[in-house]
Design a binder for these strands. Sequence first.
DNA 1: GCCGTTTTCGGCCCGACTGTTTTCAGTCG
Length: 573
Amino acid sequence: MRNKEVSEKFYELAEIAELAGENPFKVKAYLEAARVIENLTVPIEDLAASGKLEEVKGVGKSIAQKIKQYLTSGRIDKLEELKKQVPETLLQMEKIPGLGAKRVKVLYEKLDIRTIDDLKRAAEEGKIREIEGFGEKTEKNILEGIGMMRDKKSDRVSIGIALPLAEKIVESLRNHSPVEKILVCGSIRRMKDTIGDIDILVTSNKPDKVMDYFASLDVVKEVIAKGDTKTSIVTFENLQVDLRTVEPDSFGAAIQYFTGSKQHNVRLREIAIKKNLKLNEYGLFDLDTNRKVAGITEESIYEKLGLQWIPPEMREDTGEVELAMDGKLPRIVTIDDIKGDLHVHTNYSDGSDSIEGIARKAMKMRYEYVVLADHAKALGIAGGLSMEKYKKEKDEVDTLNKLLKPFKIFLGTELNILANGEVDFKQEELSFFDLCLAGIHTGMSQDREQITQRIVKALGNEYVKIIVHPTGRIIGGRDEYSVDIDAIFAEAKKYNKGFEINASFERLDLNEVNSRKATESYGLKIEIGTDAHSIASMDNMRYGVGVARRAWLTKKDVINAKTLKEFERYLKS
DNA sequence: GCCGTTTTCGGCCCGACTGTTTTCAGTCG
């Protein structure tokens, strides 16, 4: 699977081409290709091998040829050629706010500025203001920009941090200021796994009161800008939050616009043009009469464009617009479809709550069942259990099941896939459990081949039904371990094994691309489990469902969307 | 460089903001 790698090459090609002053539409074509390849659910090397590259939308003859060249030789002639024209070091300068390709190119050509250090020196010496089109203010902004860039730390946080914060702000605004409609838009509404900033839209007949109250919230560390229609603040988590007021008759258009994604919006505007309409954040307009034909609700905009309303999680321009046009959008899974949590830790291992507490929480969430999956013995650091301890746990489960009927608690285990691919217990011991999950918790620095083989071996174990947190990534913590995900999916297909979307917001692993690939290309089933170590974190299910929805999963793709009866049948299969 | 419900050439999203301009280019989201 070299999709990511190829995609990155084309992002690089686009950036360098832009700096070199290539035709902007050519640059756009490279960018589009990079984005499409990134989201492919089949390995690009397979497409190349079977001559199907040009069937991918956005890949034509020339780009197909470049992909083939890269796959076979590791280089793209065009890219090497461009690198001779413009130094690669110019790319870092584009990260300075206010500097784009055009100005970086001018700075390079006029003053031979190649690095940020060159730039800083030139600005301090007052040379930049002398260039045509630049001035004193620009020079000052560049210096400030360099400082800001260097101060800036990690720029995106997990949705598990951003969403609760956004909800808290919305709640305060609702209770203490004169808002009418209010909605969190942007990547939060699309349930992206990481969030760069928070966008909140409101309507109000006293917008200044809303703005004042917003700026005075206790989460505010700094007010960046405060105006009539937009106020920006930074929270103590270093997240920027923008609050905008919009006119009520534009609210639908505004939430559509600010929800994005950018690519999705571009597609919508293209469709609008073909229908002699124009779409912007104020509404959908007839180009002849300039009259607004939709805008109060989001639904009306999609309808007038001849599209089904598209769930925000799907708005990434990865094929959803075409389906909506044909009225064929899939019914993606919802939180209400979830009937159980298959990955919860109790205080028998490193969880903090009792079995009964967990069961009652699950019942409160309207689940029909829950699977306890405490760590097995090899993970000593997390209180991994011996078979004797599991037997004790099982006794408690049996007692509670009589009490809580028809709700059902299952006894599972979270096995460790050891360095040699074996798991903690012998086969005859594994038969004791209702469900065996297995995951890698140690030896993550093994090479790609070793880790792949470990998981392949675990998949061959007849008792292991689901691989948990399959790539091991921690958002903002550690990268995924090196693993051949296609090899694993292909192997799992043989035995009908499942994979987890770990709903813990630091993991969200599988991610959306791999989840979509698992179901779409391999027909695999997905389990969404919270990996909760406390009752409170069982609520993280919504983040896992968010990933599933972004991966277009339907109810039938999700193991824990089964009813209790269906789930019991699954366990016996 | 790609693409096709006003197709194989001539298009390719939209508006706000800023700073440099005297009518607009560049950047951003």
